[in-house]
Amino acid sequence: MATIDKIGAILNTKIEIPFKIKARESIHTNPFKDSKFDGSILPADIFEGTQLKSQNKAKMVMSAIAGSVSNFSRKIVEPVAAFCNKVKTNLSNAFNYAKTTTLSESLSDLGNYISQKVSTMRKNAEMNKISDKMPVVDLEAAWINENKLMEAA
């Protein structure tokens, strides 16, 4: 009986299994837990342990820089494309506005008016310009005309 009691006491005591895993976190940690890579790839070997060597630290820094540069280029390209699209749209709108409104007609009329005036002025200047290319008869007539104007004045 006493032997049975001893055996029962032994059975009631908890025997610790030597291969039991007490805390899973202590062995395996999630290295990406607090990281936000936004699609960037970190080529550094993260399974070498939590204590980073100086060489690995430099590798991490360089990877971060490379990722940042990649992100920067992606961020800058998008606004440029948006800006170009905006300019294109504005130009198109302005052209359509000029085409549909009477402003274009007014400018066209103004341009024709100025062109005609300049042409007339040029012709008058050429007519009034006295040169040895003119026939002597015309020069004589012009001189006589000037004499008459001077006498009348």
């Binding site: 006295i130 040169s131 040895d132 003119m134 002597v136 020069l139 012009a142 001189w143 000037e146 004499n147």
Partner: peptide, 10 residues
């Protein structure tokens, strides 16, 4: 103008 005419005739 007469001066110009004389120059042209010259």
């Amino acid at each position: 103008k007469i001066s110009q005419i004389i120059d042209a005739l010259t």
